[in-house]
Amino acid sequence: MKILVAVKRVVDYNVKVRPKADGSDVDIDNAKKAINPFCEIAVEEAVRLKEKGIASEIVVVSMGTKQSQEQIRTAMALGADRGILVETDVELQPLAVSKCLQKLVEKENPELVILGKQSIDGDNNQTGQMLGALTGMPQGTFASEVAIADGKVAVTREIDGGLQTVSLSLPAIVTTDLRLNEPRYATLPNIMKAKKKPLETISPDDLGVAVEPRVKTLKVEPPATREAGVKVGSVAELVEKLKNEAKVI
């Protein structure tokens, strides 16, 4: 089967992001960028399915500026076969991304689409579900286990309170949760090989998708800061303060 994997270029998860002084945007121009951690897990799952002989081809797609090529190359170094970049300078929101993905799904006809459950910049947790609506494909979100057999995929999902397993007919969409797998590292020889793998660049116009944002960011600001706390010397002092000062116990 063919698997389509979507990856997003985001600020590295170790970077502490701050708003710009004028509140117009976040200050990330010079911050280190990487594949969104949940997308890395999506690539890893696709590669494992290929290693098991279930997947035959892995197509990785990313959307955004030209620099997103780097993340596609990384995914190819991890085992994806070819890449598609939907290049645009417009800020893409999940609705626009899912519309572009819908067109690519029509073109590529994958049997499985794997995405991360959310990107760590926008924290939206929407794209996979929206792609499901647009394509009519069933969705297995927040997956911690994926098993494919007899034209169906069984997805164990992390839900509030525990785990739930659903069975989906293929083609289907899976979004990854953290515990699905532990992504591998790209080796130097594979990074070199990835440079030779095919990478096609297209635009949202080529796909016939209007990508203008529907939601406008008016401003960004830091969260309310907490007042500096105090260090206490003993458990007794802690309990006394919680009872008499904070009055929370």
């Binding site: 502490k16 992001v17 701050r18 708003p19 976040v26 529907r214 939601v215 406008k216 960011t217 008016l218 401003k219 960004v220 600001e221 830091p222 969260p223």
Partner: peptide, 8 residues
Amino acid sequence: NVIATVES
């Protein structure tokens, strides 16, 4: 780390 004010 950031609070966004957004308009739909």
